[in-house]
Design a protein around this nucleic acid. Sequence first.
DNA 1: GGGACCGGTTCAATATATGAACCAACGGTT
DNA 2: AACCGTTGGTTCATATATTGAACCGGTCCC
Lengths: 259, 259
Amino acid sequence: MGTVAKALSLLDFFNRARPAIGLSDMARLSGMNKATVHRLLTELQAQGFVEQTGSGREYRLGPAFLRLAALREAAVPMRDLAAGVLADLSAATHETAHVSLLQGDTLITVAFAYSAHHGTRVAMDDAEVLTFHNTSSGLAVLAFAPAEFTDRALARPLEKRTDKTETDPARIRAALTDIRRSGMAQNEGGFEADVHSHAVPLFDARARVIGAIAVAAPTARMTPDHQTLIQHELRHHALRLTRLMGGFLPDGFLVGAAA
Amino acid sequence: MGTVAKALSLLDFFNRARPAIGLSDMARLSGMNKATVHRLLTELQAQGFVEQTGSGREYRLGPAFLRLAALREAAVPMRDLAAGVLADLSAATHETAHVSLLQGDTLITVAFAYSAHHGTRVAMDDAEVLTFHNTSSGLAVLAFAPAEFTDRALARPLEKRTDKTETDPARIRAALTDIRRSGMAQNEGGFEADVHSHAVPLFDARARVIGAIAVAAPTARMTPDHQTLIQHELRHHALRLTRLMGGFLPDGFLVGAAA
DNA sequence: GGGACCGGTTCAATATATGAACCAACGGTT
DNA sequence: AACCGTTGGTTCATATATTGAACCGGTCCC
């Protein structure tokens, strides 16, 4: 691993639950020497990628991300595009809709939309990391990812988050075959009990999978009619979003019941 | 310069006018060897900090910034806080208001708000880089920055953007003395002709200057009464924002006519 | 077919990163 | 108040990662 990769990997230890990290903690988390971590953080700090908190001397993510994220959005307005499509999709289905995109080996939620129609709704967190084996979005991605990517994802330990979480790689692979055939992934209660979600993959200009768009609803609301509606709308808006982002469907991808 | 700093400095070559850069161009821009640039970009790409465009093979900013900016905002909601204060400030003054923050040696606009009151308004760009010598925000920051920082800023070549741009370091230093006394910077037509702006510095928890909040109005509208209103509101909201962000005013800072 | 680009690769020379040991400072315990 | 286990930060000989000239093969334009 190059020095740059090491430095940037430090940033991955920040999350919602741990917004600031001390030098020694960071050294422990990363397994690197304290002096090394210190030097890397100092360099990141000089560029505004991390900064030290006023009170303690802990490090946290820096202000440079505001500027760079704005520039990224100016260059590639994926988030804006996703937000527009999600607003329509959640309005049409009366459920929570979200888009998650691959970033290296992880799947990150980049945008979501709630429907105001029901009192109960599935809640989402911005910038949440999704696992592959127990979310509909994750399965949708795995089904269309390169075999070597899928192998790596399923070789990792698979957390049993709920009673219904499937953790047997062989059975997951069998499910992926169905997903490839139907062009749509489902997951009932595998991530959160009582949540039934559907997801369709998204593709880039080279027809490679880049993420997924999903609708998550309380299991109690998932009548056959509602499911039919969700699947129909999801296919339609997934295709729309892929096209908006300049992507193409891979050969043989089933658009199915889509408009 | 360490390897990490070199890699991150490549990201600074992206901007609104140049959202994607080829390998050879990047090598020229940065003055580094093509092989070096390639290795650095490859490492940045593995972490999602840059990606290659579908069509050409140019590099552009990657999706990682969406996630990290969201986490930064979750940890330090400066942008949200600024947006709220700016909405009030622009409503009270009927003019464009914006907040710019220091990031290393540059001043970046992170948020702004327009007033719907007038047909003409001063337009802003998100993530715009402000110069120090010919913007009210820049002058407000320089006046309260460490002497060594100010020296560095004024030692650089000072662009004469308009007829009215002051480019004489000695005269600028004299203006800074006044700004330190009044706690407010002004700039009339030095950045854009026909724009008269006022700015007040913002401070962090250690009473160090971190940026400025400003109101920009067409010169034609700047009557004495309007100016008095703007100065009053600006002082009030600057203090409010500094406090919201957990900052403190340095000893002797004039709150002046503020509420 | 030639020439000038492009993105990307190679490998010996060398500049850079690394980590054990070391500070000084802080906060709690005895 | 001496002790202990922390903390963030520093040092310097060692070792490892970085560097850059030259070199690909491809593509575009004459």
